[in-house]
C-alpha cells in the first residue's frame, strides 16, 4: 500500500496494518507525515508540530 507525499510527491510505503494518526517519514524529502483516512483510503498530510510535555 502506498500514498503520495504531499510535500515532494514521492510515493511513501504504508504498513499493512496502518492506522489513522500514524506518523511516517517521507524517504525522499524527510518530511514527517500524518496518515489520515478519507472515504476508506489512507492519505498523507504534513504533520503538525506537537511538543512533548511531561504532564500526566
Amino acid at each position: 500500500m502506498e500514498a503520495e507525499c504531499p510535500i515532494c510527491g514521492s510515493p511513501v510505503e504504508l504498513p499493512d496494518d496502518v492506522m489513522a494518526g500514524e506518523l511516517l517519514e517521507c524517504p525522499s524529502c524527510g518530511a514527517t507525515l500524518e496518515v489520515y483516512e478519507q472515504d476508506g483510503t489512507f492519505l498523507l498530510r504534513e504533520a503538525e508540530e506537537i511538543g512533548e510535555d511531561w504532564g500526566e
Partner: peptide, 20 residues
C-alpha cells in the same frame, strides 16, 4: 492532540481529558 508510541510506531491521538 498527543503523540504516542503504539506497536513501536508513532501515532497522533486526541489528547483526552488531561491538561497543562
Amino acid at each position: 492532540r498527543i503523540i504516542v508510541v503504539e506497536r513501536g510506531r508513532r501515532r497522533i491521538i486526541p489528547g483526552g481529558y488531561t491538561g497543562r
